[in-house]
Design a protein around this nucleic acid. Structure first.
Lengths: 242, 242
DNA sequence: TAAATAGTGTCTGTAAGACACTATTGA
DNA sequence: TCAATAGTGTCTTACAGACACTATTTA
């Protein structure tokens, strides 16, 4: 069937990132206002094409992270999210996007990109609701990224990646509540996270006396997978069928 | 910093598949003996380049599935696995592979590819052990695919995708035991799968009288996610049955 | 009848949800 | 003292694991 002279088509490969963090107890995603066409002026996920043919994908992801979010590779959780390659997703041609999910601890300032690009932390709820129009198929990528983060909080110690080097149990609970969009009982949460061996380990005495009893500090423990897993309360919005 | 004339590098995009099924109560993966260089004669996952620049990735995956495994898109579970793009993974140039995980019910015959390519079902344990050398980075892809299948058995109704249209509870248990590499108590398993609402639904009276009491038949139910999830026993040895 | 597989019941330990309660700080 | 947040204890219910036991078929 194939012509002997047939050669496989070449495509453009982009790397895009869903960078999540917590700000004021709400899940935020880093968006960039695009400076060039297509979708100039629209908001988009940080990302871009490979620099050169031999650049590694993970290297490219870290490069974008540094360029557009001033985030170094240290103390940052980064993992594959998925690939997006619908033939018409980019008007410039056939572009397949390899996407990564990045979790950053809370950062003191709205990160300003090193280049002229305007970066801004946007509440995830707002970005997902459709109030803001995202470029390309980035709304779908963001949806998948948030879903992935929600799932990983159940089975892994990903939540600690949202926190700084040390954190209180209340801060950790804040991560779960913000990402899952639920309220948890502080006492049961306290007992639960303490009972999962290696999830969090004590770090120093106390801190954060803001009108109440100071809380103990913890660090992320050696355990990456949680057994038994954290239980996400059944959200009323999700209907169950039989 | 960038040259105004800079254009992003183009790459080759491959689609590769991890196709899993159950044969004689053991997990098998479909491998193809490569007919051309590189790695001519070695075993590899089914896959190939896009046919043309506008071919959709999922369409390409289904095309490979039909070409190399004679498997139609019906009654077949297919989902994204990940992307693999190390710069030196393919000697022909920069090739990024978009991979899919496919689950097939047991097929009566070792599928022969439509083309001259030789397809063979290989026990997953053997392919993972390193006894057979897989082309490119396909050993890593296979490892990730099997891991993914193992995880998805816990939280989703994926196990039913290994079975035919109707199945007995013992057959479903066989899926879990083969993929996880553990033994489960039939009585607890029976109670568990019945208690998860919408996981499996009765289908016809009975069948399969092979020396014992006939078992009831079931179909996959409407539920895709399992609440509460199936519990995988902690298995330190990770031993395989033979 | 026995052998084999299907399906049920029952106990027990663990853990989750729902609270009341105590502890330690600042104002 | 009170307000506020941190941390503990205890009861109840759900469910997984470990069995004994019954049911229905073929040989």
């Amino acid at each position: 069937m194939s012509d002997d002279r047939w050669v496989p088509p070449t495509i453009l490969l982009a790397v895009d990132l869903v960078i999540l963090t917590l700000r004021e107890s709400r899940l935020h995603v880093l968006l960039i206002e695009r400076g060039i066409e297509p979708h100039q002026g629209a908001l988009a996920l940080p990302g871009g094409f490979l620099n050169h043919e031999r650049e590694d994908l993970l290297t490219a992801a870290h490069r974008e992270l540094a360029e557009e979010a001033s985030l170094g590779p240290d103390q940052l959780h980064l993992e594959q999210l998925g690939f997006y390659g619908a033939p018409d997703r980019d008007p410039r041609g056939r572009v397949v996007s390899a996407t990564y999910l990045a979790i950053a601890p809370r950062l003191p300032e709205p990160v300003a990109g090193t280049d002229a690009s305007r970066a801004c932390w946007t509440p995830a709820a707002q970005a997902l609701s459709g109030d803001v129009q995202l470029a390309f198929d980035h709304a779908q990528i963001l949806t998948d990224g948030v879903d992935r983060a929600r799932e990983k909080l159940e089975r892994t110690a990903l939540a600690t990646a949202f926190c700084g080097p040390t954190f209180t149990i209340a801060e950790l609970q804040d991560v779960y509540e913000a990402v899952w969009g639920v309220r948890l009982d502080p006492r049961n949460f306290y007992r639960k996270v303490q009972s999962v061996d290696g999830f969090i380990v004590p770090a120093g005495p106390s801190r954060k006396a803001a009108g109440g009893r100071p809380a103990r500090l913890f660090r992320a423990g050696p355990r990456t997978t949680l057994h038994p897993s954290m239980n996400r309360p059944i959200d009323q919005t999700e209907k169950e069928r039989s």
